[in-house]
Amino acid sequence: MPGQVKRLLIFVVIICVLFVVSRVLLVPEGFGKYGHYRATAIDTIIALPINYAGHIVCNDCHDDIAETKDASYHQGVNCESCHGPSNDHVQSLEEDEIILPSAPRDRNQCSICHAYSPAKATGFPQIDVVTHNPVKPCISCHDPHAPDPPSVIGGCIACHRGITRTKALSAHSNIECNECHTTQDEHMVNPRAFRPDKPRSRDLCGKCHAKGATSETFTKKVDMTEHGVGYLCWQCHFPHHPEAN
């Protein structure tokens, strides 16, 4: 073997040995135990402190509130959703001074969820913050742990809550359900066997929306002889929906 190759080879061997030795010395302990990563990384992540205690712990002490809440519309809303992170509160129970979680009482808190937005699902209870009892704190009428409406509900709304709430925000808010749907009394007893009907002719809408109708001037009027002939109105429009504005 020529001399220069020998010298280069020695040089290469030294570097390779250095590389192998440093690998043995420097690769962190536990690397590759479960996969191509440090096993200790999992321990570090698991050991991170929590801030949200979770609703199960809350229920241990506040079982009375939990019971009320779980029977109400807010049954799916967990405590810390409104009261904020409360692990400090749980941890401080054994201390002299108990840290209390926040208890928001102003209108802004409820409106985070309940302010009207067209992007929210149809039927989700929403209000127009400006017109719905302005300035009054929500809790003066509604109990957040049992937020049922202040008056007893009956009639159609008892079952058709979603449609009723949506209609309440639409231009048709003042029209009663039975003005468009004829409903037999048996529907209340056996709803699926006796369904309410939907308008079968265009005349019903035409009463207000036909050209020459005597309704208010801001009500949109169309020429019933030309507009959408061959279709019933509700096949294109959504009378319950604010879109009908």
């Binding site: 020529p2 001399g3 220069q4 010298r7 280069l8 020695i10 040089f11």
Partner: peptide
């Protein structure tokens, strides 16, 4: 690398 070989043969090998 402390090489000293400058022979013709080594140059040809280079």
């Amino acid at each position: 690398l402390w090489d000293t070989d400058t022979s013709k043969k080594s140059i040809i090998f280079d």
